[in-house]
Write a protein that binds this DNA or RNA. Structure first.
Lengths: 337, 337
DNA sequence: AATATTTACGCAAACGTTTGCGGGAATGGT
DNA sequence: ACCATTCCCGCAAACGTTTGCGTAAATATT
């Protein structure tokens, strides 16, 4: 039970392989009569082109790689869903690499991409990837593989990137709290070695400044790792007189809600909460959390389209883009005077 | 800047392509001297084998496909992580297809697998895939592609499967509640068209029966879709006198916790809770939830290894296996008399 | 009717790698 | 010194597909 090939079809129909090939791809050189004859038998015999051979001959792989630091509960599942939905309308297939926030695994993933001759790479880098350790990314460029960075990017490089306007998003979020009378706003942030953290931090501060207020550096919690939250957050909340919390991600928000429950504090009666969020957790949670939307689904689709754009037009100028962000108001903010 | 090939190396070193190929793969026919000479220049010139060409010639693709119904917050991220970690030690790469619980997309994914000539498929089927609609799976067999089902399987088919012992797991979970004195146990279950739901339901009932009790069918909630929980659960909890809840998945558990908060009911003071869970949500949640572990990570690794086993030994007898389940006790169960 | 064009197909090479086979040179044994 | 091995390496085919080029027949043009 060997797999049926173009040669088989050629033999059965007394045609050459070239005619079969052209007939199947609707080449104008082939008459309608033979086209339908070929297609009919191909369908009947369940012929499936060998993509390996095709792409080998055509010198491209039909593969697009998605490299991400981790696949945990938040954001990335949504992102994968977005990429998957978008790639269904294209001739490409998706391979996914997970780096576990380890730059060594990131390098290994890139080597894999080169060996597979993928046609494009979408990457969200690890904590430790920065301007001075991106030789592996430059290898991609040398191999003529298009690359866009998304979400966790390295700013100010020659690689195009796609993010939301992180500073603006954070500013919008904090603004909601300020406008509702909050002044003591605990800002919960991730690892500051990530550009995304620094940008969102800027937005937090900028919101205060534009309001004519001075942000208090003591009101910032930098959770180098999420599980440290359980130690730090209770201390912070018991000592200070916060009336609200701004969380820069879903992951930190989840940890926050658990800690609030542990401290017997409720949202929004004891503390108002605003987050930058994918939208899934914040909408399903009770009470629904007010958030600035950073949709993984939309990001995934947009990043893919941008990448395919570059693949199809390699010479086109590469630039970094921002996705717009919506404000979604819900039940987690209480107005105070 | 063309990519460097074996031919290039052959020309530069005045050797034949066959010698280069053999030298790079440590063939005994090649002397150590030339081996090191070849490897040195290959390394220096950054030679990367063209996997498309290699696999094309060798008549396999080096690809393994993972087909899953959805990538939401729970389980599947963990599963992907497990597969990814395990596949790193193998010569295979992973492609992921998401079917959105749509049998049409599932069929499409399988067609893709055949066209790509993947060497194995790991699949968790949709709600609507059953014994009478699995012609696409049989096509896989015809194409000599190995296939294992995991998690959401079709029972009693010729395809090997990998699951936990769902009935046993549910029984274990309900048992914990029974042993702690609970008799009115709300069972929260998913769509009964899934075999996994029916199995776990059996376990729920069996636990009662082995305890000499008669399970009450009115104590079963079948959430055909998760978002329906918000309507049904409050009604059920206000009418009946439940003292505890058994949830068959993380997803349903999450919805449950939100509804409990809405109703101002706390765990475990008002209601004890036990779930079958991947372990991530239950451990991070406050209070920590007692659960029967169904680890996506472990499942992913195990399914992959089983699949590779079949790929390497196609004639080996295929059988369905169960993964053992651990009980993880935490803070969500209160003893009552 | 002679020439020009179009139509419809076949020939053969090419993509990069692996591998069966063959053979010259070096080595071993007597 | 002769034969049998062993050691290294090259030749060439093969995997399935696409595609530039060539060409005979059919059709169009004058």
């Amino acid at each position: 039970m060997r797999r049926i090939t173009i040669k088989d079809l050629a033999n059965m129909l007394n045609l050459s392989t070239s005619t079969i090939s052209r007939a199947l791809s609707d080449h104008p050189d082939i008459s309608e009569a033979t086209k339908s004859r070929v297609k009919e038998t191909a369908g009947r015999l369940n012929y499936r082109p060998n993509l390996q051979a095709r792409f080998f001959r055509k010198k491209h792989s039909g593969l697009i790689a998605l490299i991400l630091p981790e696949i945990h509960m938040f954001y990335n599942p949504s992102l994968i869903e977005g990429v998957n939905a978008a790639i269904a309308d294209t001739p490409y297939s998706l391979v996914i690499f997970e780096t576990n926030n380890d730059i060594k695994q990131e390098k290994e993933a890139i080597q894999q991409c080169i060996r597979w001759a993928v046609e494009g790479v979408m990457i969200s880098v690890t904590y430790n990837t920065n301007k001075h350790s991106m030789s592996h990314l430059e290898e991609l460029a040398l191999a003529n593989i298009e690359c866009v960075m998304y979400d966790r990017i390295i700013p100010d490089t020659s690689f195009p990137s796609l993010t939301i306007d992180n500073q603006l998003a954070a500013k919008k979020g904090v603004n909601i709290l300020l406008e509702n009378g909050h002044r003591n706003i605990l800002g919960i942030f991730a690892n500051p070695s990530l550009a995304i953290t620094r940008e969102r931090l800027k937005g937090y501060n900028q919101a205060f400044e534009e309001y004519g207020l001075v942000p208090n550096p003591d009101h910032i919690l930098n959770a180098l790792q999420v599980n440290l939250m359980d130690n730090i957050l209770p201390v912070l909340l018991s000592n200070k007189t916060f009336t609200s919390i701004f969380s820069m991600t879903d992951e930190l928000l989840f940890s926050t809600t658990n800690n609030l429950r542990k401290l017997n504090l409720s949202i929004p009666d004891d503390l108002s909460v605003v987050a930058i969020s994918d939208g899934i957790f914040t909408n399903q949670f009770y009470p629904k959390i007010t958030y600035i939307e950073d949709s993984g689904k939309r990001m995934g689709a947009a990043a893919l389209h941008q990448l395919i754009e570059y693949i199809n037009h390699p010479s086109r100028e590469k630039k970094s883009r921002h996705l717009p962000t919506d404000i979604v108001l819900a039940d987690s903010v209480k107005r105070i005077e």
